[in-house]
């Protein structure tokens, strides 16, 4: 059932004249759990910002199905954005709203559901990430890991086709991090979602990912792509080194 969800073609990303990565070309298949790997500062978050429509490429394209995101009209881009959910590095919860209101806002904006149904959905989503009973807390009243989980609940609010995660398990304890991995697999299997994540956690890379791209900071381009388990054995040396810490542990 190999169907392309996202295709990245000849993407070059830059801040002003400072090129971060160039000539990235890869495809994310539907149902993939796709990891963006690389040393810190190599441009993983920047790549994610290009995929979710926050930063326009210097050259190249990002296509969802057949539709070129950056060539689309504003309305076209908004329609594409409805199809994905994003979990930011620190949760990015709206600080003037409670957790329940944070999760409810996308539902109120984009569905015609009655208030009672929305309340049900919000409770369910919060329960899924282990935050049942925290509906009325404000983001400033919960810990960093909880903010992340609440951010995930918000990202899942509209049952998106594609979920993007920036370092979801950074700052989580090992158990929560494990639960998150299970949740990611569950989301893919039960909702048929495609997941694109940036992560450094080797155990979660091997536990969940079936496809990946490896960005290199020195050569400023991708040096490998494919199943991380395959790359760990047969990839270029830099990638094998990166991945070998997880194999031995």
């Amino acid at each position: 059932m190999s169907e392309v969800a996202i295709s990245i073609r000849q993407l070059t990303m830059a801040y002003g004249d400072n090129v971060i990565q160039r000539d990235l070309s890869f495809e994310v298949q539907r149902g993939d759990i796709f990891v963006i790997m690389g040393g810190s500062g190599c441009g993983k978050s920047t790549l994610l910002r290009h995929l979710i429509g926050l930063q326009a490429p210097k050259a190249g394209s990002v296509c969802y199905g057949e539709e070129d995101f950056w060539a689309a009209t504003e309305a076209g881009q908004d329609a594409l954005k409805r199809r994905f959910g994003v979990l930011f590095q620190a949760g990015a919860l709206w600080s003037s709203l409670t957790l329940a209101e944070n999760v409810a806002l996308p539902l109120e904006e984009f569905t015609a559901l009655p208030a009672a149904a929305i309340r049900e959905i919000v409770s369910t989503k919060l329960a899924l990430v282990g935050l049942a009973g925290f509906e009325h807390y404000y983001p400033s009243e919960i810990s960093g890991g909880m903010k992340k989980r609440a951010g995930l609940a918000r990202a899942m609010a509209l049952n998106p086709e594609i979920l993007f995660f920036d370092e979801p398990s950074a700052g989580l304890d090992p158990l929560s991090s494990r639960r998150l991995d299970e949740l990611i697999l569950e989301l893919r299997d039960s909702l048929g979602a495609t997941v694109v994540l940036v992560t450094h956690e080797l155990p979660s890379i091997f536990a969940v990912a079936n496809n990946s791209v490896f960005l290199d900071a020195d050569s400023k381009t991708m040096i490998a792509s494919g199943d991380p388990k395959h790359l760990a054995a047969h990839g270029p040396e830099a990638v094998r080194n990166f991945l070998s810490r997880g194999e031995s542990s």
Binding site: I52, K81, Q89, A90, A92, W94, S95, F110
Partner: peptide, 17 residues
């Protein structure tokens, strides 16, 4: 500005809001 730092504003934008 703090919302910008916390990526709250990006969170609106990625929803098309």
């Amino acid at each position: 500005g703090t919302m910008q730092v916390n990526e709250e504003i990006d969170a609106y934008r990625t929803l098309g809001l």
